[in-house]
């Protein structure tokens, strides 16, 4: 059980939660995730660790309410417990390259750059965050992100804030030397479409690129194999080998296809949440 200490709306469907999880906070490292379950009979879903405070024993996660479990989670308030929370899972992110590191966050994915970019900046890298969304109101955590990196670049599809265009278009400009300049490494977290586009933007440009994959998972410990992805023609389990992989080696087509496996069931399940109120800890 993990008590919710803070709950803050970031967009109409995105919320930030700070939860009491001292053991996980103590061992968490950038790039890792937790698995949560919010009710008896509930699913286990992976959520990226956005940030942690070892001293306070707290963990920050940012959740977009897109499915059954995230919607149930949205019904919980400060003082409620998340029924099950386990982690930290996955391999901590290892960044061998030193220099100018550009983290790209799309939608709620930007949250995961918090602890990562802070860490990289502390070890002496020059850090840039490109935070992108459809429109100004959907850009999240601008103040917090500005505090953990050297340059924060905002992008909106409609031009309502920052650069008018996609994150990949801004990235291309950086690669050409604009603004904070050419990245020595790129790390992308966000929707599959975005990380795939980032991957194509850096391909062949000699810029090592890591992407965070979010396949379907159950246990998160390597036990089920449901999260298998093909990287460099080898089958990997995203939960124990990832979730970050060398973007240029990822078989995205397969990853996209596998994530759609339960679209029909997800819809059926989600429709029920609209009329079902979560009673904490019960069916």
């Amino acid at each position: 059980m993990a008590e919710i200490l803070e709950k803050r709306p970031l967009t109409p469907i995105t919320r930030l939660y700070r939860v009491d999880a001292p053991l996980v906070a103590k061992s968490a490292q950038p790039g890792q995730f937790v698995i949560v379950r919010v009710r008896d009979g509930g699913e286990r879903i992976p959520l990226t660790i956005a940030d942690y405070d070892r001293d306070a024993g707290t963990l920050t996660i940012v959740v977009q309410e897109v499915g059954t479990t995230t919607r149930y989670l949205g019904q919980l308030d400060v003082g409620d417990d998340i029924l099950d929370l386990v982690g930290p899972l996955g391999m901590p992110l290892e960044i061998p390259v030193k220099g100018h590191i550009v983290g790209i966050g799309g939608g709620f994915g930007a949250a995961a750059l918090l602890c990562l970019m802070r860490e990289l900046r502390q070890r002496g890298d020059t850090t840039t965050i490109i935070n992108g969304a459809r429109e100004k109101d959907l850009l999240i955590l601008n103040d917090e992100l500005a505090g953990v990196c050297d340059n924060l670049e905002l992008c909106t599809d409609d031009g309502s804030a920052g650069f008018h265009g996609l994150v990949t278009e801004r990235l291309a400009q950086l690669i050409d030397g604009d603004g904070p300049g050419r990245p020595d490494m790129v790390i992308a977290i966000g929707p599959m479409l975005m990380i795939r586009a980032v991957t194509e933007t850096t391909r062949g440009k000699d810029i090592p690129t890591l992407v965070s994959l979010d396949p379907l998972m159950i246990d998160g410990t390597g036990m089920c194999g449901g999260c298998r992805v093909t990287v460099d023609n080898e089958v990997k389990f995203a939960c124990v080998d990832g979730p970050f992989f060398d973007a240029h080696q990822v078989d995205f087509e397969e990853a996209v296809r596998r994530n759609k496996m339960y679209v029909r069931q997800e819809g059926e399940s989600k429709n029920r949440t609209a009329c079902r109120k979560l009673v904490v800890g019960q069916d």
Binding site: R39, G41, G42, E43, R44, T68, T69, I218, D219, M223, C224, G225, G226, R228, T230, V235, E254, R257, R258, K260, M261, Y262, Q265, E266, E268, S269, R272, D283
Partner: peptide, 29 residues
């Protein structure tokens, strides 16, 4: 890695641990 291929672990875990046989009352299909 085609859709519809499982390990026995995943298949059984979905049903035994996550109660997929009771979907959509249980949330895991």
């Amino acid at each position: 890695n085609l859709n519809g291929v499982y390990s026995a672990n995943e298949f059984l875990t979905r049903v035994n641990l996550m109660h997929a046989n009771d979907f959509p009352n249980a949330d895991t299909p």
